[in-house]
Amino acid sequence: MALQGALRRAAALALGRRGGPGRFRMGNSLPASVGLSHDAAVNHIQDMISANCVVIFSKSTCPYCKMAKNLFESINVNYTAVELDMNTNGSQLQDILEQMTGGRTVPRVFVNGTFVGGATDTQRLHEEGKLLPLVHQCQEKRKS
């Protein structure tokens, strides 16, 4: 357990991440990372997902990624965006996300620790009234 925490801290330091999960706000993205081992990259992804209510693994020029980010902005929900095309380990992170989610396309949207899909899946959840309850459930969990 202590080793896993040490690996996550090392991955966060390697990525230049300082401060707590509240550091990343609506529309902000993570800095580029440098030379992560496979295990450190996996731990980083898992840490990001568990430390934030909404994480969008994205590419800066992708229209579907913009659609997903715009959806969360329109409902005033903070998210953390990881721009894979601006990250030196972006391809490695995308490979790991494919192993985790079964798909390589972006965006890969996680809400409350769970993969919810891409942009159209996330939009559908919102239209069905299921997205905000997932976000609120996460926010409530973090308050307690």
Rank of each mutant, 00 (worst) to 15 (best):
Q92A: 09
V106A: 01
G129C: 09
V111F: 03
V109L: 06
E127C: 08
Q94P: 08
V109P: 00
T114D: 13
R124I: 02
L97S: 01
T122K: 10
H126P: 12
V109A: 05
G129A: 08
G118I: 05
D95M: 07
T105M: 08
D95I: 03
T105D: 02
T122I: 06
V116G: 12
L93W: 11
L125K: 14
R108E: 06
D121H: 12
T122L: 02
G117R: 03
R124G: 07
Q94N: 15
F110C: 00
E98P: 00
L97T: 04
N112L: 02
M100I: 03
V116C: 15
D95C: 06
V116P: 14
V116T: 05
A119N: 08
Q123P: 02
G129N: 09
V116A: 15
E128K: 15
V111L: 08
Q99T: 06
R104Q: 06
G102V: 04
G117K: 02
E128V: 05
F110P: 00
R108P: 00
V106W: 14
E128W: 13
F110G: 00
R124A: 14
S91L: 14
S91G: 10
T105Q: 11
L125H: 13
G102D: 04
N112E: 08
Q123I: 14
D95A: 02
D121P: 04
V109Q: 03
R124L: 11
E98V: 05
E98S: 06
R104F: 08
Q94D: 12
L125E: 13
D95H: 08
E128I: 05
M100Y: 09
S91T: 11
E128A: 15
G118D: 07
Q99I: 07
N112W: 03
G118L: 01
F110L: 01
Q123A: 10
F115M: 00
D121V: 00
L125C: 11
T120C: 01
T105V: 05
D95P: 01
T114S: 14
V109T: 06
K130D: 14
K130R: 15
N112I: 03
S91R: 14
G118R: 07
T105W: 09
I96Q: 10
Q94K: 07
G113F: 01
T122P: 08
K130W: 08
G103H: 12
Q99H: 09
K130N: 14
T101R: 09
T101Q: 10
D121M: 12
M100C: 01
H126F: 13
K130Q: 15
I96C: 07
P107E: 03
L125W: 10
R124S: 15
G113V: 06
T101P: 09
L93I: 15
D121G: 06
E98N: 09
Q123K: 15
Q99R: 13
G113L: 01
L93E: 05
T101V: 05
E128R: 15
G113N: 11
I96L: 14
R108L: 04
L125D: 13
K130V: 06
Q94I: 12
E98H: 11
G102S: 04
F115E: 02
Q92C: 03
G103N: 10
T114F: 07
G129M: 05
V116I: 13
